[in-house]
């Protein structure tokens, strides 16, 4: 077997800037590379990558491989898989990390199947086993009810995707130096079998959920779209954003992009308020990084109280008005 060496992360660039979770990949990648005593590489695919390559170095990469091509402007499974297959065969990384985002969750499995190697999706912890030097991967399963710890022993590279916000980025270090290497894409446009016709951005009113310091989420117990206007009021008062569990999104009470959880948004606010929601594992997966969890639910047995720091047992329709009133008083006084 050829010698596989080093850690490689696949970063994502939007409008010439590294996506914030690419910085998280660089952070954990740096740690794994240091533990192995090997190099950390970053591969950036796109069109007009510009200063993002330099940024990757300042956040931890030793080498940045840039594949800049107009055909890579939009993410497409065929083109990105072909380029990553080529890059992996050329660089032979021991470990390849991607983000569990719109690109990584599609690209990682397809690439792993093409390379004939294993991949662990949505990891929340990665470490190097001091004896075997293999990457030990921890991943939530059963909607977060359990954690599985896995290793890929037989094949290389060992591929993992990382849950957004599960790892901390390094501080930007302007004194860091590294090498930027260009790799041609050499894509055959005829081999790209999909076409991106349009991109539709959901309009965000107020603070973005991912950036909000306070997140107020509602669940099935809210009962309908009207109830969510009361949650809006709470969010506005606390300077936060409103999210929801899956049922309100699926029932059309709120926009689909407000879904918080395993397959929706991952939020890490200082204060999270869960109202009229049971606290399914799928939802908890999206809020486990919240510093303070507050729950309002009429069922004292609801799972949300098992993870909450502060709780109020009662019908939210009766609890919220006095809560809002008191908060207003305290905030103005």
């Amino acid at each position: 077997m050829a010698e596989y060496k080093g850690v490689l992360i696949c970063g994502e660039v939007t409008e010439g800037r590294l996506e914030s979770f690419s910085l998280e990949l660089l952070g954990i990648g740096r740690k794994l590379a240091d533990d192995l005593g090997q190099e950390l590489g970053a591969v950036l695919l796109g069109s007009g990558i510009g200063d993002a390559a330099k940024e990757a170095i300042l956040f931890g990469a030793d080498k940045v491989y840039v594949v800049d091509d107009p055909l890579l402007k939009d993410y497409q499974t065929d083109s990105y898989t072909a380029v990553m297959e080529k890059v992996c065969k050329q660089l032979l990384p021991d470990i390849l990390l991607l983000g569990q985002g719109a690109i990584g969750r599609d690209l990682a499995p397809r690439l792993a199947f093409r390379l004939g190697t294993g991949v662990t999706m949505d990891c929340i912890e990665l470490a190097i086993d001091p004896e075997t030097k293999l990457m030990v991967q921890t991943k939530p399963v059963y909607g977060g009810n359990a954690l599985a710890v896995l290793v890929c022993e037989q094949t290389k590279p060992q591929i993992a995707t990382i849950r957004v916000k599960a790892m901390a980025p390094l501080e930007r270090d302007d004194s860091r130096t590294g090498e930027i290497i260009s790799i041609p894409a050499e894509l055959d446009p005829a081999a790209m079998r999909t076409k991106v016709l349009d991109k539709v951005k959901e309009e965000v009113v107020g603070i973005k959920l991912e950036d909000a310091r306070v997140v107020v989420c509602g669940g099935r117990g809210i009962g309908g779209p009207e109830g969510f206007s009361q949650l809006e009021e709470v969010a506005k008062l606390l300077g936060g954003a409103v999210g929801a569990t899956r049922p309100p999104c699926d029932s059309g009470w709120v926009a689909a992009h407000l879904q918080v959880g395993l397959t929706g948004k991952i939020v890490t606010p200082d204060v999270y308020v869960g109202i009229g929601l049971s606290g399914s594992s799928q939802h908890i997966a999206g809020i486990s990084g919240a510093k303070n969890i507050i729950a309002i639910n009429k069922d004292p047995e609801a799972n949300i109280f098992r993870v909450a720091h502060y709780g109020a047992v009662g019908d939210y329709k009766k609890v919220l008005p006095t809560f809002i009133q008191k908060c207003t008083e305290l905030l103005s006084g």
Binding site: I294, H309, Y310, T322, Q325
Partner: peptide, 21 residues
């Protein structure tokens, strides 16, 4: 996490006490 439940007799009291908490 160990949940601290707010004190009170009625839902209305819970609401106000949660804000105080």
């Amino acid at each position: 996490a160990r949940c601290e439940f707010v004190a009170g007799e009625t839902a209305e009291e819970f609401g106000a006490n949660l804000a105080l908490k």
